[in-house]
């Protein structure tokens, strides 16, 4: 007990390394960064369970209504899905590099990479929108516009295909919502970087936004095979 009394919390502030970026509640910048990262990881665990609710339903129905899910999956454009995967992976790469640039304190590089990530994210959303509008024209949107033709059903019961499309729209829609939030977050980071508010000592915000962005990428990594590749594409 004696050594802890010597370094009691009340004695600690005098020895603090003070930095303008340090918030008042933290001892030093390292603790602040640690707490920021840890907080985001805990939040991602929350997000995992959030998506997990839909994934649970997906697994359950997929095993109950496999033919309908396979038929619905074959109605999706696999090439577009693959292209979206590539775009999103590229955005994850530029994001990782952006964090790297922020740590090195290279403002120009950071701005460029953030901008590239945002553009790739918008490209992804554009492709998503194209796909949604195709679905609309095919009259395959459950609830609003669902009148599938017999070729689109591929011999599967109509209700099971509709259920699959419900999942398709819920899951991709929820993912797209997260993408939009992520793009907003990165735009804020870009503005901060533009104003020179991100330094090599204080780049935690970029790092944390990066974690979020990678998480959204990981969700897509699972959505792609789960939605587009059910039952394979061989003839």
């Amino acid at each position: 007990m004696s050594e802890s009394a010597a370094s009691s919390p009340l004695a600690a502030p005098s020895a603090r390394h003070l930095s303008p970026a340090l918030h008042h509640q933290f001892e030093d910048i390292e603790q602040q960064r640690d707490a920021g990262n840890f907080g985001m990881w805990v939040f991602l665990a929350t997000e995992m369970l959030f998506f997990g609710g839909v994934f649970t339903g997906y697994i359950m129905y997929r095993s109950l209504y496999y033919p309908g899910f396979a038929a619905g999956s074959h109605g999706l454009e696999v090439n577009l899905g693959a292209a979206m995967t590539f775009v999103l992976l590229a955005s994850s790469f530029t994001m990782a590099m952006a964090v790297h640039a922020a740590r090195a304190g290279r403002r120009g590089m950071l701005l460029g990479l953030l901008f590239a990530t945002i553009l790739l994210g918008i490209a992804f959303l554009g492709m998503k929108f194209t796909e949604y509008s195709h679905k609309w024209h095919e009259q395959m949107v459950p609830g609003l516009n669902f009148h599938p033709s017999l070729t689109e059903l591929r011999g599967a019961p109509e209700h099971a295909v509709e259920l699959f499309l419900c999942f398709y729209f819920f899951m991709t829609g929820l993912h797209a919502l997260h993408m939009i939030i992520g793009i907003g977050l990165l735009s804020v980071m870009a503005i901060l970087a533009w104003r020179g508010r991100i330094s090599c000592e204080h780049y935690n915000r970029v790092e944390v936004s990066g974690l979020y962005w990678h998480f959204v990428d990981i969700i897509w990594i699972y959505l792609f095979p789960l939605l587009y590749l059910i039952g394979g594409r061989y003839k």
């Binding site: 696999v78 693959a82 995967t85 792609f224 095979p225 590749l229 394979g232 594409r233 061989y234």
Partner: peptide, 8 residues
């Protein structure tokens, strides 16, 4: 993963 989908 895209390619393998075309193999049975």
């Amino acid at each position: 993963t895209t390619g393998i989908a075309y193999i049975n």
